[in-house]
């Protein structure tokens, strides 16, 4: 029965507005312009409000993998951040079971440290105990495959190629069992071999009863990992349903 399903994420009419400080555009860069702005009390031209999510509601259940699609700037990443509790909602509410973890390709670790130390640091930051970390380090490095071309794990991360760094980050985040895992385009990086492995890991994580959200521009990886799909456009849900149906609608929209 449908009501036997256990919800893990509930998004109830959520609005997200965020404020962007941007480096001065033309005419705002001089000290005089800054002074005038303060005296006249006008809002700085460098501060802009972006209404990124305009009332989104849905319920995600245990064991689901949900793909988020939409054109660039449609609010996919913002929605993930809001679910992760990193961006506050302006109106409405987002409820989640446990602490959702956001896994993005831009997750920064310490670039001057060797990969191995970064693995330890990342695991500790996810709340693992030192004993757990010890038993996991080798597995994580093996999974990331950065040692396939020699001993890279003892080299500083700044020497890694962007693909290698992304693989390591993904491997760290995927080492822990998350109630809700939010993945932002992470699978798009790495070579075909790694992509296959990471897709398998996403499936495993899902089998361990978590919920997975995946933001990606690759229709293939959404098709392969998600059976449900939400299509966001300009901060609103355009469609929500089985992946095949939603992708079909999306494709005809994009081709127009």
């Amino acid at each position: 029965m449908a009501d036997q399903r256990e919800p893990t994420v509930i998004v109830d009419d959520a609005h997200v507005v965020y404020r962007v400080h941007q480096a001065g555009t033309a005419g705002t860069g001089s000290p005089l312009a800054s002074f005038k702005r303060i005296v006249t009390g006008t809002k700085p031209a460098t501060l802009r409000e972006v209404h990124a999510i305009k009332g989104v509601s849905f319920v995600a259940y245990k064991g689901e993998a949900i793909g988020l699609i939409g054109t660039n700037g449609s609010g996919k990443s913002t929605l993930l951040r809001a679910i992760a509790g990193l961006l506050p909602v302006e109106k409405g509410a987002i409820y989640a079971a446990g602490q959702p973890s956001l896994l993005g390709v831009n997750a920064a670790l310490m670039n001057d440290l060797p990969g191995e130390r970064n693995v330890v640091l990342g695991c500790l930051a996810m709340g693992m105990s030192p004993a757990q970390v010890k038993s996991q380090v080798k597995e994580i490095i093996d999974f990331s495959g950065i040692n396939e071309r020699g001993d890279f794990s003892s080299l500083p991360m700044r020497t890694y190629s962007s693909g290698m760094a992304a693989r390591l980050r993904f491997s760290i985040a995927a080492a822990k069992k998350h109630d809700v895992l939010l993945i932002d385009e992470a699978l798009a990086t790495g070579d075909a071999k790694f992509r296959k492995r990471s897709e398998q890991r996403v499936r495993d994580l899902r089998a361990e009863a978590g919920t997975v959200f995946l933001v990606s521009h690759s229709e293939q990886s959404i098709r392969d990992t998600c059976e449900r799909c939400i299509w966001l456009e300009s901060g609103l849900i355009r469609a929500d349903g089985p992946t095949e149906e939603v992708l079909k609608q999306y494709e005809s929209f994009v081709k127009k």
Binding site: A2, D3, R5, E6, P7, T8, V9, I10, V11, D12, D13, S57, V59, A82, I83, A84, G85, P88, V89, A93, I94, Y95, A96, A97, P100
Partner: peptide, 19 residues
């Protein structure tokens, strides 16, 4: 599915508000 308002559904399943 259950006809519940979302907030009630969240409360019933013990979900906590993000943030």
């Amino acid at each position: 599915d259950t006809g519940l308002p979302l907030r009630e559904l969240a409360r019933r399943h013990g979900l906590t508000a993000a943030g």
